[in-house]
């Protein structure tokens, strides 16, 4: 029963990730895409944790911990890059 619960939870998180990717591809402005990316990173983190518990392997959780702490550095870089692009007057 425990493994069944964890199995279905993993499938739900995969569906969430797919829907987020649709938003990421559709999103009309750069801000929409960044919002979808932000949610996608959270869902990926939850997937790593649930998979680590399901497989009973600590390695997944160590990866999840590092991804948790340094995950937002990627957004910082992307946001800074897009802001520079806007201030240069280019089209997004």
């Amino acid at each position: 029963m425990t493994s069944l619960l964890l199995h279905y939870m993993q499938w739900f998180l995969i569906i969430c990730a797919v829907v987020c990717i649709i938003r990421l591809l559709v999103g009309p402005t750069a801000a929409d895409r960044l919002v979808a990316l932000n949610i996608l990173s959270g869902v990926a983190l939850a997937f790593l944790v649930v998979r680590g518990v399901a497989q009973e392997r600590v390695l997944y959780l160590d990866v999840a911990l590092v991804y948790d702490i340094f995950g937002f550095l990627g957004f910082l870089a992307i946001a800074r890059f897009l802001k520079d692009k806007i201030s240069d007057g280019e089209e997004m």
Binding site: C16, N38, I39, G42, V43, L45, A46, V50, G52, V53
Partner: peptide
């Protein structure tokens, strides 16, 4: 909701 609360609930379940 999806990025914070759902993820946090999944953590609690895990």
């Amino acid at each position: 909701l999806c990025g914070t609360t759902a993820v946090f609930s999944a953590f609690i379940g895990a």
